[in-house]
């Protein structure tokens, strides 16, 4: 495709040369390093005291209305039960927050800044297809995001391994690689959202605002909406017994809430990654709970619907952006 490489290369160098990029990249790196350091310390202490029975919120708000709240997962009691998932949970949460911001910061003005500058007409007068321009710009952005992800992951995981002294098994490496891949897709989704808005909205200031609203919806609004709708449809039941009132959640609540909040890319991302990083879980048989290990295959199978939705969402958003741009009048 003529012009594709030229566009991708230019976009990539433009992005990594910008101050805003370095600023958010730096922020992400610091946040990830701090959270993996803390996660590492927690992991080590939970490993040494195997009898700990405290509830591990793992970055989740009790009651579960936090953005990462995932009630479909078995409740985890000990660090050693969930393994990596619990130790890296704040890295996951932070990545879903700052990673989204970084992707948006990169892409919110991809096309409308060219329009404003008056360089898009020039660009389109060259013998290249518009495909080359969207693909090129998108891939340039993806490369920048990949660069960021590689650096943050290497640094974050490096710190984590350093603190815990954990030996890398094939299983762990595999889980981390999937974690990395899913994180890339997550950022690619926000990159596509920014691209789409930069095509639809003529002003970069408007598309920035719109992108931030989408981001906010993803981390906060949609999960909260899931909680609220779940409550409306399946309110918490209050019953009175001798010891006082007790509250029971109806199972429908959990399902509705999981479905709606799972529509948010951030929740979907955290659910997928947490499942992939969960190495073992509690299984209840008649009267006792046993710890069983969860293989990567099994974890992948569990999150398959979310994963399909996740990738599908990316493709759908990019396709809409592509279709609109290739048909748009440029003057």
């Amino acid at each position: 495709m003529a012009g594709f490489l030229t566009m991708a290369k230019k976009e990539f160098y433009d992005i990594i040369g910008e101050k805003k990029f370095l600023l958010i990249f730096g922020t992400l790196l610091i946040v990830i390093l701090v959270s993996t350091f803390q996660g590492g310390l927690q992991y080590s202490s939970s490993q040494s005291s195997t009898t700990t029975t405290t509830t591990m919120p793992g970055g989740q708000v009790p009651g579960g209305q936090g953005p990462g709240g995932n009630q479909t997962r078995p409740i985890q009691f000990m660090g050693s039960v969930s393994g990596l998932s619990q130790a890296l949970s704040s890295m996951v949460t932070n990545f879903s927050l700052v990673g989204g911001v970084l992707a948006i910061a990169i892409s919110f003005d991809t096309i409308n800044s060219e329009k404003q500058r008056g360089s898009l007409k020039t660009l389109l007068s060259y013998p290249i297809y518009r495909d080359s321009i969207v693909y090129g710009k998108y891939v340039g952005g993806l490369l920048a995001v990949a660069l960021v992800s590689v650096v943050t992951f290497m640094a974050g995981i490096g710190v984590f391994l350093g603190v815990t002294g954990l030996a890398l098994t094939m299983d762990t490496v595999l889980r981390l690689l999937i974690f990395f891949g899913v994180s890339l897709v997550y950022m690619a989704i926000f990159l596509a959202i920014g691209l789409l808005l930069s095509i639809v909205l003529p002003q970069p200031s408007t598309s920035l605002l719109a992108s931030m609203i989408v981001w906010l919806s993803s981390i906060q609004l949609i999960p909260n909406l899931g909680y609220a709708i779940g409550q409306i449809l399946y309110p918490v039941r209050m019953t009175f017994r001798e010891g006082g009132p007790s509250f029971t959640m109806q199972s429908g609540f959990t399902t509705i809430r999981a479905i709606i909040s799972g529509l948010s890319p951030s929740t979907a991302y955290e659910n997928i990654v947490n499942s992939i990083l969960t190495t073992s879980e509690l299984q209840f048989t008649s009267n006792q709970a046993t710890i069983v290990s969860v293989s990567v295959d099994k974890a992948l199978l569990t999150v398959a619907p979310s994963l399909i939705y996740f990738v599908g969402l990316l493709i759908a958003i990019f396709a809409v952006a592509y279709i609109i741009f290739t048909r748009q009048e440029i003057r």
């Binding site: 433009d14 500058r117 008056g118 360089s119 007409k121 020039t122 297809y129």
Partner: peptide
């Protein structure tokens, strides 16, 4: 359209450039 503009040079109205 691609072939049609292959050998055409355009100076658009109010052309802008990459400032950096």
């Amino acid at each position: 359209p691609l072939q049609a503009r292959r050998n055409v040079g355009l100076l658009p109205e109010n052309a802008g450039f990459y400032d950096n």
